[in-house]
């Protein structure tokens, strides 16, 4: 399925090659290369995985073993925004379940799903190191804390209204 439009753009290929060159062995760049691909496309498709693997001198299966091992590499499409709601212990004590329930109701999805308009994916995440402001969540690269159902819902609404 590597049609022309699924190929990695040349600058991305160059960046991956450079990452691999800077490491003691090319495979050490696996996670950083996958992270780069994901930053560009939102997720890592089979075709992009195979092409990345060949740049690192690895088999696609070998690289997929790494891609699927780590929580932050997405092997399925996600929305334009990703909400990662902490499901670890301090956030649980401070009411993250109620926050999650409200987000699910408002977005009409369960954790692991993406809204029909492609705007938001909701995922659980382990402790974000923001336990003194529990419940906490990461919206794309931004950390939010001291959430309750209302503030979380408001944040989710903003994401859906924002231009893609």
């Amino acid at each position: 399925m590597s049609t022309a439009d699924t190929l990695l753009p040349p600058d991305l290929r160059a960046q991956i090659t450079e990452l691999a060159r800077a490491e003691h062995r090319p495979r050490a760049a696996s996670v950083s290369a996958l992270t780069l691909v994901q930053a560009h496309f939102g997720w890592v498709s089979d075709a992009h995985l195979a092409e990345t693997a060949s740049l690192l001198g690895m088999s696609p299966a070998d690289l997929d073993g790494i891609a699927t091992y780590f929580n932050l590499i997405f092997r399925r499409p996600v929305g334009r925004h990703v909400i990662m709601l902490c499901d670890s212990v301090s956030c649980w004590i401070m009411g993250r379940d109620a926050v999650c329930a409200r987000l699910q109701a408002r977005l009409g999805i369960r954790p692991g799903e993406t809204t029909a308009d492609g705007a938001v994916t909701l995922l659980p995440i382990v402790c974000l190191g923001h336990c003194d402001h529990a419940p906490a969540m990461l919206v794309d690269h931004t950390l939010h804390g001291d959430l309750d159902a209302e503030t979380a819902e408001h944040l989710a609404d903003t994401l859906r209204q924002a231009a893609p």
């Binding site: 212990v89 301090s90 402790c127 190191g129 923001h130």
Partner: peptide, 11 residues
């Protein structure tokens, strides 16, 4: 790699 739940010192 601060991932021990309940820990927020290294950040």
């Amino acid at each position: 790699d601060e991932m021990e739940p309940g820990t927020f010192k290294d950040r």
